[in-house]
Amino acid sequence: MTPRQRRMAWVTLIVIGVSVATFLALAAFQKNLLYFYTPSQIAAGEAPTGYSFRVGGLVENGSVHRDPDSLAVRFTLTDGAARVTVFYDGILPDLFREGQGIIAIGQLQPDGLFKANQVLAKHDENYMPPEVADALKKTGRMPSVDEFKWSTP
């Protein structure tokens, strides 16, 4: 091998070696890299109890109940298969509404109520003018938010 070929081989080896190492590390940390749990995972008992975690889902239509005298709000998150009731006392983001993707951070109570201390809105990757959105809603061709529906390996 000429020196140049040797250098080329080294660079290739580095790229392959680092890629494999990264793949193994990420595969091992897969669970810790999940930003949120879905209601199905909570129903299956995969979510931790006793400490804070995040739950993500769609705010179910007609499930939002606000306390008239305070900021407290109670709503149901769903991923299509399971649901979890969330209680939150604080300021909601602008995008919070029924049917919206939401991530709540808090603790699961023993009775199954999720007590959130922060609520984040998750918007999807679709961008369109309001008129187009109205038209799509009328014909029922609005792209659905399916990201909360896939179950993680």
Binding site: K122, N126, Y127
Partner: peptide, 16 residues
């Protein structure tokens, strides 16, 4: 929390 890709989606770009 960050949403998925918009422009490089396979079916069609999810943007008007």
């Amino acid at each position: 929390l960050h949403q998925g890709p918009t422009v490089t989606r396979m079916d069609k770009p999810a943007i008007h």
